[in-house]
Design a binder for these strands. Structure first.
Lengths: 203, 203
DNA sequence: CTTCTTGATTATTGATACACATACATATTG
DNA sequence: CAATATGTATGTGTATCAATAATCAAGAAG
């Protein structure tokens, strides 16, 4: 039997700080860095610790062939453009290698007044890299000429297709061999909503 | 024979290594880092060695195939989501058929702290719909597991490839038949910058 | 006289040691 | 039985050390 010392606590298994309970949840190592980069790297590590890892899937609203959205240019996000020289590094907002900044809204929504978004339904434009669930940026101020990818409503059905305007007639051409081009007849009720400028595809 | 004490050289002022003749041309500091980030940071530092002023030639960073940007979520653009029922019309901000609104920045930049953008160079991922000039949204808080498309620096070269982690080994797999998968050997200096969440392609 | 060799000298660099801070488990106390 | 006290174990930042690399100029070699 052990005596009863006046000291509290004592040696026991399992005591002590748990492994991985540190700031980074992993073992650490001491390295030497150029002085000017120390704050940059510390800052980066701080940001890195914040969010663990998860990317929820986008909610996919139900609709027919497409769903539209429209910009309301009230937002602004500046994205610093880094030099290609930071080849093996990591981007940091405090980095010197920023060459330019990019705002998704500004970059892709040139004419907020005439631009809207469409969520793609179906894969009829698969070969153009437009897939189900993608979001298209559509500008209706661009002339829908031959060859452009357009959002068109034909006979009350909304689709995204490549516009083909030839002497032989006008067609809405899918880019997927499982689909056939849609002829635009005289009596067809065709409305071109606009020209697709960008496709945004999430993995 | 040669009784002369071979005292070549000798003590003299001004001798010795010059200051700033190190790898970084500046004083250094010792810091503690999470182990997993040590190679990342070392790689990064390698790429940021200063240009030779009067110093001998330094290893120049190789050309890369991507350019990076980083978000700075200061912007906000609400994009009204229209119902697919507005089939034959065009969307209007005042329209009743708005179902939801979408901001490009908010929608695609979930974690501004850990997200950056990369402008793609080359067509090695053509079959995944990633083309030269496209902009990728990259989140480094997402775990780079098997099958993810990642931005990786391997031996100081930046690439976008699909990550393949099998029992047989790790590969960086291009999605273009003109390219061959890159084996990641034990001695390879692989750094995963982050996981590609979205590709934005303009027509 | 010119060029090369070589030791002396000093900064760099990675590794290690150490002190302190933090987290945890449980005996002791009330 | 709950709250507290105390010892133990690990994390974190800084100091220190030894090996390496860079540089200079005195001698040696030609």
């Amino acid at each position: 039997m052990s005596n009863t010392p006046k000291t509290h606590g004592g040696k026991r298994p399992g005591a002590g700080r748990k492994k991985g309970s540190g700031l980074y949840n992993e073992p650490t190592k001491v390295v030497r860095l150029p002085e000017s980069q120390v704050p940059v790297i510390k800052e980066w590590l701080k940001a890195r610790v914040k969010s663990p890892a998860d990317a929820p899937e986008l909610p996919l609203p139900k609709a027919n062939n497409a769903q539209t959205l429209r910009p309301d240019a009230s937002s602004h996000v500046d994205l610093p453009l880094f030099s290609h020289k930071v080849v093996a590094g990591f981007p940091s907002p405090a980095d010197d290698n920023i060459e330019a900044r990019l705002d998704l809204n500004e970059h892709y929504i040139r004419n907020p007044e005439t631009t809207f978004l469409v969520r793609v339904q179906g894969d009829s434009m698969k070969k153009s890299g437009i897939h189900h669930g993608d979001i298209l940026v559509v500008d209706r101020s661009i002339n829908p000429v031959d060859g452009k990818i357009v959002i068109a409503a034909i006979d009350s059905e909304l689709t995204v297709k490549r516009l083909s305007v030839k002497s032989t007639g006008t067609w809405l051409v899918p880019e997927n061999d499982d689909y056939t081009p849609i002829p635009v007849k005289e009596e067809s009720n065709l409305v071109i909503w606009g020209v697709v400028t960008t496709v945004m595809h999430s993995f």
